[in-house]
Amino acid sequence: MPIETINLTYKYNPGAAFEKTAVRGVSLTIPDGAYIGLVGRTGSGKSTLIQHFNGLLKPTEGRVLLDGEDIGSDKKRLRDARRRVGLVFQYPEQQLFEITVEKDAAFGPSNMGLSAEEAIGRARESLRLVGVPDELFGRSPFDLSGGQKRRVAIAGVLAMRPGVLVLDEPTAGLDPESRAAILGNIAETRRRLGITVVLVSHSMEDVAEHAEEVIVMSAGTVLTRGAPADVFAREDELRAAGLAPPLMVSVARELNRRGFSIPRGVFSPREMAEHISKELRDCLKT
């Protein structure tokens, strides 16, 4: 179910003294099955843009098409859009409210009109998918650790079985281990269910590692879009947008300046180490 925005503009407080254009004239398509990294500095319009994908915000100008159809403002259609495009907000653990973990994750499906058993069934399925151990299902969500809480919140959205999963900074404020684990869970979920993932992130490393395509936003517009290797090679452009390329890109540049020939698209320390040692070995041979 592709998402398409056509000339989308959104203004906060239109007509008032505090009017602010957060998104200006964005036209983009999120194709089926893609894993897209949406990056941009704070205030570049990422969060505002993604809230259009499920109709939480209505465009000031322009349109949003879901599966070729305008989301519009019809109540039924909106509800449908929210089910099909799962949106996980920043710090989603702050919206937990139920008595038990599984009841909280069942909130979405029961709002869709499923029976209590069906909803709980889906909740459990999603909780397992994101790696919440079974023994926590009956516990209060407020007793869990930060990383577990966030998993529960993500499962709450997944339980609606969306075709597109949009995550706004899903790893913000977590320790490195939980970060890696949650991103791993998301990748695994995508592989198993074949859903589209849009990952909004400040972390170029996370995006470089997981996304197949990167969209860079700056001042409410799409600055550039492409494969991570191509986008991150354009360092000056990224820096102008207030972003820094992944660490390994900078390392590769410095090495290449000193006579190495590290190819583009090397984002992990492991790959980098392999390239360096290979070149050194070749060097010793000659």
């Binding site: 929210r82 702050q94 709002n111 959205v157």
Partner: peptide
Amino acid sequence: DKIMKAQAARGAD
């Protein structure tokens, strides 16, 4: 506002 949006994203009415 933020919480209402987050719950609306989970189908709350």
